[in-house]
Every structure is written in structure tokens, then in C-alpha cells.
Design a protein around this nucleic acid. Sequence first.
DNA 1: ATTTACCCTTAATCTAAGTTAAGGTTCTTT
DNA 2: AAAGAACCTTAACTTAGATTAAGGGTAAAT
Lengths: 201, 201
Amino acid sequence: MTIPNLIPSNIAPLVEHFNDYLPMDAEDIAMLIPRFVERKVKRRQFILQEGDVCQHYSFVVSGCFKIYKVDEKGGEHNIQFVTENDWATDIGSFHAEKPSELYIEAIEPGHILQIKRPDLLFLYVNNPKFDRNFRVIIENKFVELQNRLLQSFCVNATERYLTFLEQYPALSQRLPNTQIASYLGITPEFLSKIRKDLVSK
Amino acid sequence: MTIPNLIPSNIAPLVEHFNDYLPMDAEDIAMLIPRFVERKVKRRQFILQEGDVCQHYSFVVSGCFKIYKVDEKGGEHNIQFVTENDWATDIGSFHAEKPSELYIEAIEPGHILQIKRPDLLFLYVNNPKFDRNFRVIIENKFVELQNRLLQSFCVNATERYLTFLEQYPALSQRLPNTQIASYLGITPEFLSKIRKDLVSK
DNA sequence: ATTTACCCTTAATCTAAGTTAAGGTTCTTT
DNA sequence: AAAGAACCTTAACTTAGATTAAGGGTAAAT
């Protein structure tokens, strides 16, 4: 661990995360520490609700969150799960400062670090490393999202489920099947059928 | 127009594009000019094929391109159309230098400006403005892609078509319905039915 | 000028996934 | 410890959209 021990322990995972992209020196770290706020989140607690402007980029230190949309008929559609060392936000709402169509909700109790828009803009303007880091972070998110779109277009529900198991083996243990079904774009009943058919080869 | 007239006219749209994000001075422009290569593209010509590593970020000066994936059964699925002043690339393949799963093909004859990976990395390392610009470009692309995913999850084919007409009125004139159907994730036959039903209220 | 290739539509049949309903099970909260 | 949620499964029925097939239209290449 290359991080000086003057860093509050609860910020360490975030500093390590940025370090994975571009080495952070003491000055960089000093710049980000006061701008992130720690927050504990209970199970089922929202960090974003439809109609609200998304005010934060939230870095997940622990816990598991779902980002989802509710359709006209009240059905929930998970677009992304966010766990340790990943970011939860509605980028569109955050940057355009427009009401979000999405919910971000804790599936498990957790622990996050949040930065507000003006503070993130401050980092962008005063330290180009943050432009770089977030460029790369968003490039990776873009690729993930594009693969998800390709899957949903090109393969059937059974193959989407198998890909999910392969890609996120830990999540498949951690989440109830109702949430996985919503992520795959199918009903829990149909997922149940797929699982049964898979077991009997 | 704030661009000095020493700029080759064929690069001007690109400089203007960057200017929309962050003002480019003479030095910035001098840095990018030698790194972009102009290329004419015929109808049906590929700028990326499945199995090849995506070597370029391609800025479209004129023309219309489709980015699509071919499924196991040979079906084509358009994931994005790219027209004037937009970028065509497979970000995942480009950055990981891995074979692409996608095709990028000209629907119309066109005219593009291409930059290779080492040249783009040079810009990133030597001028933080490019990290910023591409961060914002990719943020916008991410939002576009996320909206597409939400649409495909939450609404039926008729509403997806209406949204497409609203969002890209010019494209709906410019493209054959077969291409639009592929973008919407339906067959041309079903799009034809939707159009008929819409006309008869 | 005409063939070729692509494009649009209609309609009948087919299928993957949704819906509803019901019973049993396992977490969570009191 | 009990009650209440939430979760998982099975099964019968329904539906959105796919598939197939066929006819006619239009642009473009020889």
C-alpha cells in the first residue's frame, strides 16, 4: 500500500481506486479528501429518486446498489448493479442538472463517498488528472453498457442469464433472482423456468 | 468563425467541434492537425469489420455510418447511426486493442478524419484539453446509449419508433426503413405494420 | 434499357416470453 | 417467537413480435 497513513481510513478505497488509473500524489489526495462526504446507507434506502436532480457522484465503499427505471405500468427495470469500488450516478441528470428518470436504491446496507457537482467541477478545473481518471472510468462504463445492449439485442434470455453468471459470479450469489430477472429483462417466473431447464441439461 | 484560415478547410469541422467543448488555441490546433488523416469512404465501405482491432477514432465530416453487430444466425443489429460532427469507433476494441465484435459501414458516401491510438494517446499525455474534450464527448455518448437501453426495456416497438422519429427526424428521412427496423430491434415487416397502424390512427 | 438488387407491404402462422394465480419457503422485522 | 414480507417455483393461458412467403415498387449498375 503506497498511501500515506494520514489519509482517513474511510477514504482509502477511493484513493486506491484512482491510483489504479493514475498515481495520486499527496497534493492530489489533499485536493479530493475535503470534497468527498462519507455516508452510511440502509437497506432499501434511496440515494436517487425519479424526478430529483442527481446531485452526486457516489463511490461505493461497501454494499450493493441497483440503478433502475420504473415503467408506465409500475414495472422495475434494473439497468445496472453497483458494488464495491464502483460509481453510482445518473450521469445525464448530473451534468444537465435535469430531473432524473431513475432510482438508485441500496439492496444491502452500505457505505458510500459522495461528491457534489461544484466540487467535481473544481477538481476537473484545477487538476487535469481528474479529467483523465473520469474519462477512463466512463469509457469503461460505456463499454459495459454497450455489451449489455448487444446482449439484449442479439441473444435470448437463457444465454443472457449464462453470460450474467459468467460475468458476475459473485453477484449471482449475492442477489435475489427477482433482481437478476429484472436486470435480464425477463419476469422472475421465466427466470425460474430457465433455471429449471438448465439443471435438467 | 474564430478559426485562423491557415487551417486546411477539411479539418475545420473538427476544430469547430472541439471548440464547442473547450476553446482551442493555435497551439492546440497545431498539435491535432498532423495527427488526423482525411479519408473518403464509398457507400457500403467498411471502416471496421468484426475480428479486426479498431485502430481509429473516426470523426465524420460528411456521410452516414451504421455501427452494428451480426448475431449467430446472421441477423444485423444496428446499435448506433453516426452522422456529421459525431464520432464512429468501437471504444472497447480501440482501448483494449482486442478484436472487435462490430462492423462500422458507410450507408452513404462520406468523408472522415481518423486518428490512430498512439496519436490520440500523445494528445492525451501532452495536452489535458483532450482528456477533457473526450471525457465530455464520451459522457454524452454514454447518456445516449443509456436512453437507448431504457427505451428498449421500458416501451414497446410502436413507442420506440415514435421516439426515434422525434429524436432523429432527419435520420428518419435519410435512412431506409430496413435500417431503422434494425435499430429499433424489430423486423422490417413489423415496422411496416406499425407504420400502417399509426397512419390509420 | 433492362436486369439486378434492394426495398416496402400484407397476411398467415409460429414462438419466446409475459401474465395470472396459487402454494410453499425463506428472510426480516416486531 | 411470531407475523409479515419478500422470494421461488409450477402450470395454464395470453400476447408481442418473429418468421415465412409472396407481390409490387424503385433505384442503380451493366
